[in-house]
């Protein structure tokens, strides 16, 4: 399995490359008042409206208040720190590659994206090497993790993004650690 890897804070994370549609430099986005705090906002990429997820908030990390640029007339917020948007494929798009993958890993219908701090390499991971998350792993609650892999000296956390883009209700009712759980 090829995995796209990223850095988020000091954690090394990865997602199945088949689920990734494209990666952009972070750009202007529009917040959605009243939405959950881990929804950063909406983004227009070539006519598609992407809902951006703030992974740090999703993992309920201590509020890292982004530094705002002041004295700027733009209504839209520009993150001063260079970040990257990882735009995911939709269920429909993954369906064309693999029905099984779409049903288990990519259950969202809307175009969504993740915000990460830095980009890493594409890694080839052998499925057998993926281990269940260690119980003492800090920072990411177990349902969000599909497994961990030791790569060189680092520990790569492979995300269960079906859970990340699922709603909290589902989390409560369907707490499994494996990757193969449908959200909808």
């Amino acid at each position: 399995m090829l995995v796209s890897t990223f850095h988020l804070g000091n954690i090394y994370i990865g997602v199945d490359i088949l689920l990734v549609r494209e990666i952009n430099r972070s750009m202007e986005y529009t917040p959605i008042p009243g939405s959950p705090n881990y929804i950063r906002g909406m983004l227009n990429i070539r006519g598609r409206i992407i809902t951006l997820f703030d992974l740090k908030r999703r993992f309920a990390w201590s509020q890292e208040e982004p530094v705002r640029q002041s004295g700027q007339d733009k209504e839209l917020v520009v993150e001063p720190k260079k970040q990257y948007n990882v735009i995911m494929k939709t269920h429909h798009e993954v369906m064309r590659i693999s029905r099984r993958l779409a049903d288990t890993q990519c259950t969202w219908e809307d175009p969504v994206g993740l915000v990460v701090d830095r980009l890493g390499d594409v890694r080839n991971v052998v499925d057998d090497h993926i281990l269940p998350p260690p119980a003492n792993l800090k920072g990411i609650s177990a349902p969000f993790i599909r497994g961990v892999v030791r790569i060189e000296k680092e520990l790569l956390v492979i995300l269960n993004i079906a859970k990340i883009f699922g709603s909290d209700d589902h989390l409560a009712t369907d707490v499994t650690t494996g990757g193969a759980s449908r959200v909808h």
Partner: peptide, 11 residues
């Protein structure tokens, strides 16, 4: 409206 924003009835 993106499905993640549907709880906000204002839009």
């Amino acid at each position: 409206l993106p499905s993640y924003a549907k709880d906000t009835t204002c839009f």
